[in-house]
Design a protein around this nucleic acid. Structure first.
Lengths: 357, 357
DNA sequence: TAATTTTGTTTAATCGATTAAACAAACCAT
DNA sequence: ATGGTTTGTTTAATCGATTAAACAAAATTA
């Protein structure tokens, strides 16, 4: 490794103190420094290819200009989409992002928070996992600036930016009911996460509102095991020949992806046999032969707001901001009124070619 | 913010020097320290909820245990998939990852490298963009440990982990030729990036090998503008009624995603009218009615190897490692022998239902 | 001319750890 | 008893910046 250039090297070469060099390079004491000297310092800094040692600076100023981002899994499009927005927003404000995936695992999550705090991040943006409430409370006690995104704990008074999940589910189910579907199922997660509970609540409430009796068999909450298998079993159950449902809401992109694969394999016709709506947006929804109707979470807004709130908290703003944004229901072919109902509600945007395979 | 606990606080409370505290907490001078004192120190550290200030430690040791990751766009599944592997691998070795998206933009890329170096990252993993060769050379000159992934410059002697892109393209085209396709097109990027050039070279070589004359009109290299429009135009051209091609290779997941949307819109029948193969793997390929045949890049291996090589370089290993891994061609419905050819080569895994929309 | 202000720069402490070297006390051997 | 080890701990320099305070010289004011 080449010797690193530091303030002292510049100071020596110019023949001044390091203090002066620091003042010049940070544009402090503007009026006080002789133009010629300042110029010379800048010149030499350039010539020696000086770069500030951000670590030393951080130590002195107790400011790292770093945000710690903890998501469930950076390879999930929801997380990586969010990460991208946060990165851009942070960059605009001269912050850098360090990230980690919690994998919905308490130990990992704790370790990440620990690592990030040791590194003196100025603040955290977190998608908290199940059972991480104590961790969140501990952050609060330590007065660490942080914002929760996507998920939050209604009983803990923290900053958060999330969806109005009740409303989102409600809207989706209302739409399916409007289209005439009667046996509307949902595949969700078995979890105490408020976010998911709210989606369930919205589902049940919307059924009630439309005079549909909630059948517990139609709400399948999959557990921790192999998601693929769980989703497949769920769909097999819901589509059992004796009592098949006619519409289905997926509670996340991951569930939907597995679900769609299985629906393909079973050659279930969408939307005629089964209408579909899913949470989240991915490119994949466009490629399904009946492009999926989905609840579009305003990711850019979530990311921007979360970063903004965090940076304000870092600046010392102590007010708590809690935002529940509205998902937009983007209606497409997977959930239009089934053909046999004859009412023209909305044409599918695309119908697949008939293949002679 | 609560007062932060430092070594001195522990030292004072126990009544020893900070040096001793440091030795104990770092398990140094194992045999030399009185058991009772060591115990007391650990106890008090726990009690005060001490956490090392990694910044101070880094300053003293000139080691941040941080890797800088620069990808094209963290929200692209290729990048985020890679990021996830690198994160895990780094974590195992007690490293943290900071990341940034270059957006294929030289300025952004330069700024990221700059920021990361200011932060004294121990090393970098980079997917270099077009025209970043000077940047890479500069890193080399500065003796900064780094590894290129996915892309590299054949004329610059650096560590890299990438694909054998020539071979990958060649394999894909060979497969299409084997299936009996004659008019095989490719949609790629207009770029000098070696990675992409190699994909082109493989395409042309494989055509030649199969006695197909390379028609320049069949290789469309899209420019910088709006990718969606560019891809749509490309497909319109290739499928013009007078001279439609019968097979198509997409040079990236982004191109493929846009392409598939348009192919859906045009109601082109895959694979009968047009066989498809694409680079990269995404969940989306499964949801297309004719699941896509794709060149699966060994992302986990790439990520793991890149991290391993980087960490070794950080440890002082000066040997240069250059790896060209092999993509696996995963053959599925989008590229089987067309029905009218009557030769049964491989059954499609899935055929779409016929809808009465 | 002396006192005061302004201009330009340096001194030195500090952030929170690490670690070589120094030191003191106890132990051992001859 | 004397010198040499061993054991246990402290001293103090250091990493590379920042910045309040001190200082010196020049300019201004009275």
């Amino acid at each position: 490794m080449n010797k690193k250039i530091c303030l002292k090297d510049i100071a020596q070469k110019v023949g001044v103190s390091t203090a002066l060099v620091s003042y010049v390079l940070n544009n402090k004491k503007e009026g006080r420094i002789k133009k010629s000297v300042a110029e010379k310092i800048r010149e030499v800094a350039m010539e020696l290819n000086y770069r500030t040692n951000q670590i030393a600076k951080s130590l002195k100023t107790s400011k790292t200009n770093t945000i710690g981002l903890i998501v469930a899994d950076i390879s999930n499009p929801f997380s990586s989409g969010l990460a991208r927005i946060i990165e851009d927003e942070a960059e605009k404000n001269n912050y850098t992002v360090i990230f980690g995936s919690s994998d919905e695992n308490l130990q990992r999550s704790n370790k990440l928070v620990d690592t990030f705090l040791n590194r003196q991040v100025d603040g955290l943006i977190i998608t908290p996992g199940e059972n991480t409430a104590p961790q969140v409370i501990s952050l609060l006690k330590q007065n660490i600036p942080f914002v929760l995104v996507d998920r939050y704990f209604p009983e803990i008074k923290t900053n958060y930016v999330a969806l109005d999940n009740f409303k989102a589910s409600f809207t989706a189910i209302q739409h399916l009911a409007n289209c005439g579907y009667k046996k509307i199922a949902m595949i969700s997660f078995e979890t105490k996460l408020f976010t998911i509970q709210e989606r369930k609540r919205g589902y049940i409430a919307a059924l009630g509102k439309n005079g549909i009796v909630f059948d517990t068999k139609h709400l399948i909450e999959i557990g921790n095991g192999d998601m693929k298998t769980n989703v497949e079993n769920a769909i097999n159950d819901l589509m059992s020949p004796d009592q098949p449902v006619d519409a289905l809401l997926f509670a996340s992109n991951a569930i939907a992806t597995h679900g769609l694969r299985h629906i393909n394999a079973l050659r279930i016709k969408v939307p005629d046999q089964l209408a579909l709506v899913t949470f989240d947006r991915t490119d994949a929804w466009d490629l399904f032969y009946a492009p999926l109707t989905y609840l579009d979470q305003p990711l850019p807004e979530m990311g921007r707001l979360a970063t903004k709130i965090l940076l304000e908290a870092i600046e010392g703003n102590n007010t708590i901001t809690q935002l529940n944004l509205t998902a937009e229901l983007v209606i497409r072919s997977s959930s239009v009124i089934p053909a046999h109902q004859k009412r023209s509600f909305k044409k599918p945007l695309f119908s697949p070619p008939k293949l002679e395979v």
